[in-house]
Design a protein around this nucleic acid. Structure first.
Lengths: 159, 159
DNA sequence: CCTTGACCTTCCCACGATGGAAAACCCCAT
DNA sequence: ATGGGGTTTTCCATCGTGGGAAGGTCAAGG
């Protein structure tokens, strides 16, 4: 099987197959005399495995670990589970971030009349940096550990 | 004010300030005789605006539009709102994707005993690509146009 | 005046995962 | 044998950010 056929069989683009090989995620494929890469059904199964894992959002590095465990008959399922749960935790963290962004922006958009007039709470918020009371901020620790950005400095700046 | 002070005051790294200038998101800063960039409080306000917008996950291009509207007294809030809502829609789409991934992986992890034994539903799922009934798949069109990766092959592999 | 250290400048490289494109080569069918 | 389509490598781009090198500048202190 050449790379095009392996690609069609695994739903991984030829480009990505070569890339995975170049970074060592999959072993170097055999070659024909003319230099064409040659794949077996085993290789295709590995590629399908990788494709599934990518669909679940796993990073390449983590997929490498999983492929290793997959091939290892002595593996403990605990190791696999640990990797999966690490990824679940990362997904949840990301989901929380995005949800916070969405909520803030949703609130602002809802508060904006969206008419022909220039007045707009969205721009006011971006401009003001959320220093008005009662406004929930995503994360505001910029001033901490920023040696020159104390409120005074801002005051001096704006004055 | 030089770039370091502007950076501290806006909480945007000097590196990023130069980058924003290079891509035209902010105008080219004035220079001292020695070539140092010079910033005003107005510039710092723009940088703070950009920082806030980045914190909300807006792409640079979209931020450019917002900065333009921000400066435009003749803007209509409808335009601003449209941009915000486009971003909310993208955030929600991304959240749905990540949530689907998390749910699938969560299910699999919950079904995995996580002990010393090698048996693991997570690996079975990645391997099988969800051909077992009752398992929800994110997207499954791999099998169409896949001439060489029959279930038999999987059987050969694991056997 | 000279040194020192902190700052600034430009330019290049890297990330992660993917796509695009060019130039050359190969294979199969007509 | 020729043409069209597959394959090879290599380089470039994305997006936003960081790191670092090599060199100029500035301010403070000897």
């Amino acid at each position: 099987m050449n790379i095009g056929q392996a690609s069609a069989a695994s739903d991984v683009s030829a480009k990505m197959i070569r890339y995975y090989e170049s970074i060592g995620l999959i072993p170097k494929a055999g070659r024909t005399e003319a230099g064409y890469r040659v794949y077996t059904t085993t290789d295709v199964n590995t590629l399908r495995f990788i494709r599934r894992a990518r669909d679940l959002g796993l990073a390449i590095e983590r997929i490498g670990l999983l492929v290793g465990l997959w091939r290892d008959r002595e593996r403990s399922s605990a190791e696999v589970k640990r990797i999966a749960e690490a990824h679940v935790a990362e997904l949840e963290a990301r989901i929380l971030e995005l949800t916070a962004m969405r909520d803030t922006l949703r609130e602002l958009a809802d508060a904006c009349r969206g008419d022909h007039r220039p007045d707009c709470p969205i721009l006011r918020d971006l401009e003001g940096g959320g220093r008005r009371p009662g406004r929930r901020r995503i994360d505001l620790r910029q001033c901490a550990s920023a040696p020159a950005a104390q409120p005074d400095a801002v005051g001096k700046l704006t004055g």
